[in-house]
Design a protein around this nucleic acid. Structure first.
Lengths: 337, 337
DNA sequence: CTGAAAGCGCTAACAT
DNA sequence: ATGTTAGCGCTTTCAG
C-alpha cells in the first residue's frame, strides 16, 4: 500500500495564494477572526481541489489534546453491557469529535501498568472510563493522586466513591416484588452466589425491598450457592432434594443465573411462571430468547455510558461537576413472572 | 483536573546531562546505535526520576504513523461476535504497541463519509478492519481506489473479494449432519429467513452438505420464513399447522433462530433432542444457557480477528501477502442434538 | 483582515 | 559514541 502523500495546510495555502495561518482560520472557523468572503472561498476551493483533510495528529500535538478517550472493561462483564454502554459513550462523544480507544487492562497487575493508564501517560487518551464491576480502592487512590481524569461505570459498587456513575435499583426492585405479590406469590426467594461481594448490593436490595413490600424474609428463601455460576444447577439439585420443592418465586442475582434456573425448572418439569416465577437482576440480549422469556430488572446502560462520558469531560475540562450521578433501574416483565 | 505539566525528552536530556538524541536512542533501543553503558544508565535513571513517559502523539507525528487501527462493526452484528473478534485483533496488535480506535459508521451513507474513513484521512488510524456482514461493492472500489489499507472480516460474503478473512464451513457442516444421520435422523431441514442474501451461503452450504452425506433434499425441508427473525415463531406455527409435525432435525441459519425454535418446541411440548434435533450455525454466548443447550457450528472468531489484523499490517507495511485467508468452522455438539 | 514566525515533543540524518 | 540540527503539520501570538 504505497503512501500517496497527503496534502498539508501549507499546500492549500500555496494553492489559494494565502498564508498557512489563513487556511487554519477559515477551516477552523476561529471565533473572533474575520476573513473576507473572497479569501474564504479561495481557501475552501483549494482544499477541495487538493482533497485536503487536516492531519489530526499534528493538530493534537499542537493543541496538546489527544482527542480520544479510553474505555476499559474487565473481561468478565457481559458483552451486552459493554456494547450498550459504548453506544452511550459514543453518542456523548460525537459532538466533540473525540474518538474511543479501546483498552484491555490485565486484571491482576497494578493499575499503573494497565494499558489504559499507560495510554494516558503517553498522551494517547485524555481520560479513562472504567466499565468495571469493581475498581480497587488502591486504584482509586492511584488515579486521584496522579490526577488522571477517570470515571467508573458500574452497577455493583458498594460504597459511594467519587467519579462514579451509580444507579439505584430500589424502586425497580419494589415494583418487581409488588407484581409478584399481586400475582399471589408471597414467597419470594433470592438466588445468587455466596462469594460475590460486588453483587452483595443486590442481595441487600432484595432484603430491603422485601421489607418495603411487607413480604417475609426467611432463611430458607436465601439461596446462596457456593462455587461458580456454572455449578449453580448442582446447588439447585441439592436444594430441591432437601426441600422437595422450589419457592413460589425466585429473584436471581444475574441474568445468567436466571437462565440456569430456567434450565433447571424445565428439566424438573416445574412450570414457569405457573409454579415458579423467575425475575433476574441485570440486562441481557438473550432475555427474549429463552423459554419462557426472562423477566428482568434492567440497568440503564446506554444512559450510564452517556452521562459517564459527560462526567469525564467535565473532569477533563476542569469544570465543576457533581462527581457521583445516580440513574434508575427499571423492571421489565416478560413471560417468566 | 489541573494539567500537571509532563516532562519531555528534553527535560530528561538535561537531567542526564546528555542530548535529546541520546535519550531517544536509549529509550527506543535504536538498532545500530551503540551507547555507552554508563550514559544509558544515566538516561534511564533520569527518566525514572522525572517520571518521564514519551509523548506518543509527538512520536506519531514525527513517524507519520498513527499507531492505531480502526475497527468498525455494523451494529446488527451480535455483540458476541464482535467482542471475540476484538480480542483476536487486540492480541495481534499487542506486540506492535498499536491501539484500537472504535469507529461507528452509519450504515446508510456513502463510505467516504463514514467515520472510519474520515479517521483514516485525518491520520488518526492507519487502516480499517470492517467487521461487517457485507461490504458493498462500491465501497470496496472506493477503498481500493483511495488506497485505504483495510480488511473485511465476515462470515457471510458470497463472493471472494480481496482483503478478506473468509471461512469455510463445509467440513463442519458435514460433520454435524453426519452426527445427525448416525443418530438415525435422516430428515434434516433448514430453518432460515427468506430475504437474507448475506446468509444464503449457509443455505447453499446446507444443500451441499446434504448431498455429501447422502441425505435427501426435499422442498418440505427448506423452511424459509418471510419477515424478520422476531416473527419466525409465527412461521413455525403455520408450518406446524400445515404439516402436523416438525422434521426430525433442523439446522438453523443462526443462533438466534435456533433459540426461537427451541422456544417453539418447548411451547408445543416437542422434546429436544428426542423428537427434534436442533443445530444452529453461528456462535453465541448463550449456547450453554438455553434448555436444552444449543448445539452450534461455530466460526473461529478469535482467529478471524487475529489473522485479519495481521493481514492488515501486511497491507499497511506494503508486504506481499495473500489477501484472502480462509479459516475453518467447527461443530460443537451440545444437548439439543 | 492577513502574514511571518515560533514552537508543540519527537526522531534521524549528518556531524563530530 | 554522542551532539547538532532540521523538520513533521498544525495553531497562534504578534505585526503589519
Amino acid at each position: 500500500m504505497e503512501k500517496t502523500k497527503k496534502p498539508s495546510s501549507r499546500d492549500v495555502a500555496r494553492e489559494a495564494g494565502v498564508s498557512q495561518a489563513t487556511v487554519s482560520y477559515v477551516l477552523n472557523n476561529v471565533p473572533g477572526v474575520k476573513i473576507k468572503e473572497e479569501t474564504r472561498e479561495a481557501v475552501l476551493a483549494a482544499a477541495r481541489k487538493l482533497n485536503y483533510y487536516p492531519n489530526e495528529i499534528a493538530r493534537s500535538m499542537r493543541l496538546k489534546k489527544a482527542m480520544s478517550i479510553g474505555v476499559v472493561s474487565d473481561k468478565d462483564l457481559s458483552n451486552f453491557r459493554l456494547m450498550k454502554i459504548l453506544e452511550g459513550i459514543k453518542d456523548a462523544l460525537l459532538p466533540k469529535n473525540y474518538s474511543i480507544t479501546l483498552c484491555f487492562d490485565k486484571q491482576n497487575g497494578p493499575i499503573e501498568q494497565a494499558e489504559s493508564v499507560r495510554y494516558y501517560r503517553s498522551n494517547r487518551i485524555e481520560g479513562i472510563i472504567f466499565v468495571y464491576t469493581e475498581l480497587r480502592e488502591e486504584d482509586y487512590r492511584y488515579l486521584h493522586e496522579h490526577k488522571v481524569p477517570f470515571v467508573v461505570i458500574n452497577s455493583h459498587q458498594n460504597q459511594s466513591l467519587s467519579n462514579q456513575v451509580q444507579n439505584d435499583m430500589e424502586q425497580a426492585l419494589i415494583t418487581a416484588l409488588l407484581s409478584l405479590k399481586n400475582a399471589g406469590k408471597e414467597e419470594v426467594a433470592f438466588l445468587g452466589l455466596q462469594d460475590r461481594s460486588p453483587l452483595d448490593r443486590r442481595f441487600r436490595g432484595y432484603l430491603k425491598a422485601l421489607a418495603a413490600c411487607g413480604l417475609p424474609a426467611e432463611e430458607r428463601l436465601c439461596m446462596r450457592a457456593p462455587g461458580k455460576a456454572e455449578e449453580i444447577e448442582e446447588y439447585l439439585e441439592a436444594y430441591y432434594a432437601e426441600h422437595q420443592r422450589l419457592p413460589a418465586a425466585i429473584l436471581c442475582e444475574s441474568a445468567g443465573i436466571g437462565f440456569r434456573l430456567l434450565r433447571f425448572a424445565a428439566r424438573k418439569g416445574v412450570t414457569v411462571p405457573e409454579q415458579l416465577s423467575v425475575i433476574a437482576i441485570g440486562s441481557s440480549r438473550f432475555s427474549t430468547l429463552s423459554y419462557p422469556a426472562l423477566s428482568t430488572i434492567e440497568n440503564p446502560l446506554y444512559e450510564m455510558g452517556y452521562t459517564g462520558c459527560q462526567l469525564l469531560f467535565n473532569l477533563i475540562e476542569g469544570k465543576p461537576a457533581q462527581s457521583i450521578i445516580t440513574l434508575e433501574w427499571r423492571f421489565v416483565p416478560r413471560e417468566s413472572s
